[in-house]
Simulated assay, not measured.
Amino acid sequence: MELLQLRYFVAAAREENVTRAAQKLHIAQPALSQSIARLEEEMGVRLFDRIGKRIRLNAAGRELLRTVEPILASLAAMPEKLQAIADEEAEIISLNVLAASHLITDLIISYRTTHPKTNFKMSRNVDSLDWDFRISSYPGGGEAKLSGRQGGRNKAEPQVGNDETKLLEEEIFLAVSIKLKYADRTEIELEEVSDEPFLTFPQNMPYHELCNRIWTETGISPRVGLESDNPQSLKELLSAGMGVAFWPQFSWGSPETEHVKLLHIARPKVSRAVTVTKNVKRRFTGSMEEFYQYMLEYFNAIAASEKRI
């Protein structure tokens, strides 16, 4: 039995006329008749009743038609399905990373071990619209009255209609050099370090807004020692004893070395939520949804660990 025979059989069954079926198939009528005869011989039963110039399916023919039609329909759709799979394997997932860049980098490395054909494009532009997922943050449920999302001209608020999900909530610590007198402590109040140089992100970065809100709520004007958009640079500056900095529990990895220590902020308690937003204006493919579910599980595992990374 050949696939072509089955296609010819379905055409004849629909037309109930061999001549018309042959015309639709663009083949000679004798060729179609011979194909049907061979199929009936292979099946061992007649499939049509002949009524003059017309043919009509008998019980055996109707059963074969019910079986064959969905198979042929599935095969006809297969090239498009296979092409979609190939496209998804080679596609690029765009990430707009405004928070937790350290974790997102580790996430991509982990994901690529099992999905080597998936590529990623990362940006850190708060004004960008070219993204599939946006990773952002806003003040969490700590004691500080940091109501609302991050303010400022370039605030990274999810657009109306986009699908936002909280990935985790993390405590904000104060990172200090062991050279400072506070290094033997486990917690500290911000008033105690108000005269220390403060290391922070530039003003156009969302984390800068969070830092400003913390200081505003405590009524302290910090002495900014240096601004950098790179957590690794802040870690090196902290190690050199050039100031203190707010440090999120998970997002940037641990700065703790023999030169740096993290202290709980006793008052006010501060946290932030890290979120992922789907861009609803994009067509989401199966591989995008698979990556999204992987991301949720990845961050759930981090949050469940309750440890600083």
Rank of each mutant, 00 (worst) to 15 (best):
Met1Pro: 09
Phe9Lys: 01
Ala11Glu: 14
Ala13Phe: 00
Glu16Asp: 10
Glu16Thr: 07
Asn17Thr: 05
Val18Ser: 01
Thr19Ser: 14
Leu25Asn: 00
Leu32Arg: 07
Gln34Asp: 13
Arg38Asn: 09
Glu40Arg: 09
Glu41Asn: 10
Gly44Asn: 13
Val45Lys: 13
Arg46Ser: 12
Arg46Pro: 03
Arg50Trp: 07
Ile51Phe: 03
Lys53Asn: 14
Ile55Pro: 01
Ala60Gly: 03
Glu63Ile: 05
Leu65Gly: 01
Glu69Val: 13
Pro70Gly: 09
Pro70Ser: 05
Pro70Arg: 06
Glu80Trp: 10
Ala84Leu: 13
Ala84Asn: 11
Ile85Ser: 05
Ile92Met: 11
Asn96Thr: 02
Ala99Cys: 10
Ala99Arg: 04
Leu103His: 10
Asp106Gln: 15
Tyr111Ser: 02
Thr113Phe: 04
Thr118Gly: 07
Asn119Gln: 15
Lys121Gln: 12
Met122Glu: 12
Leu129Ile: 09
Arg134Lys: 13
Ser136Phe: 09
Ser137His: 08
Tyr138Val: 06
Pro139Asn: 05
Gly141Arg: 14
Gly142Arg: 08
Ala144Trp: 03
Leu146Asp: 07
Gly151Pro: 06
Gly151Ile: 07
Gly152Arg: 05
Asn154Trp: 14
Lys155Leu: 12
Lys155Ile: 07
Gly161Glu: 06
Thr165Leu: 09
Glu169Val: 10
Phe173Asn: 11
Leu174Gly: 08
Asp184Phe: 11
Thr186Ser: 15
Leu190Glu: 02
Glu192Ile: 02
Ser194Met: 13
Ser194Ala: 15
Asp195Lys: 12
Glu196Phe: 05
Leu199Ile: 14
Leu199Lys: 08
Phe201Val: 12
Phe201Leu: 08
Glu209Pro: 00
Leu210Glu: 13
Leu210Phe: 13
Arg213His: 08
Thr216Phe: 02
Ser221His: 14
Ser221Ile: 15
Val224Cys: 02
Gly225Asn: 07
Leu226Glu: 14
Leu226Ile: 06
Leu237Cys: 03
Gly241Glu: 10
Gly243Ala: 04
Gly243Glu: 02
Gly243Ser: 08
Phe246Ile: 03
Trp252Thr: 04
Gly253Glu: 06
Gly253Ser: 05
Ser254Lys: 06
Thr257Glu: 04
His264Cys: 00
His264Trp: 08
Ile265His: 06
Lys269Asn: 09
Val270Asn: 01
Val276Pro: 00
Thr277Trp: 04
Asn279Arg: 03
Arg282Gly: 03
Arg282Pro: 03
Gly286Cys: 03
Met288Val: 03
Tyr294Arg: 04
Ala304Leu: 15
Ser305Arg: 15
Arg308Leu: 12
